[in-house]
Computed example of a mutant assay.
Amino acid sequence: MGHVEGVVEPHSLVKLLEDLLRGENDEAPRSSISLGGSWLGAMVAGGMGYFSAKIVGVYPENPGRGLPLVRGVLLLFRGSDGEKLLDIPAEEPTGWRTAAASALALSKLGFRGGGVLGVIGAGVQARYHLRVLLQIFRFDEILVASRRMETGERLAREFGGRRVGRRDLLRRSDVVVAATNSREPVVEGDFLRSGAYVVSVGAPRPVRELDDSVKRRASCILVDSAIACEESDDACGVEAVTLRDYVRGAASCRWGDVYVYKSVGTPLFDLAIAIHIYERLSGRGKVSTSSSE
Rank of each mutant, 00 (worst) to 15 (best):
R254V: 11
C229H: 02
T289L: 13
T242M: 03
P206R: 02
V164W: 00
A218E: 04
V241H: 02
S173A: 15
D234A: 05
K262D: 02
W255C: 02
A178L: 05
E188I: 14
A251I: 01
L169V: 13
E279A: 07
E184K: 14
S232H: 12
T242Y: 07
V177A: 09
D224H: 05
R162H: 12
S290D: 13
V199L: 10
D245N: 04
R216Q: 15
F269P: 09
A178G: 12
S194F: 11
R172T: 05
A196N: 08
Y259K: 15
S194H: 11
G160S: 08
S288L: 12
R157M: 08
Y197F: 14
A272W: 09
V175D: 02
V187K: 01
V264M: 08
Y197K: 03
A274T: 14
D257E: 13
V164N: 00
A228K: 00
V187T: 09
L281T: 07
D211Q: 08
S173I: 07
R284M: 12
R171Y: 02
T289S: 12
S282K: 09
E230V: 07
L210F: 00
T242K: 02
V199C: 14
A250F: 01
R163P: 11
S225K: 10
A250G: 01
G249Q: 03
F159T: 14
E184T: 15
S252Q: 08
V260Y: 00
G202E: 03
E230R: 10
A235W: 06
G237N: 06
L222E: 04
D270H: 14
V175S: 04
E230W: 03
C236S: 02
L222M: 08
D233Y: 11
D212N: 09
D270G: 14
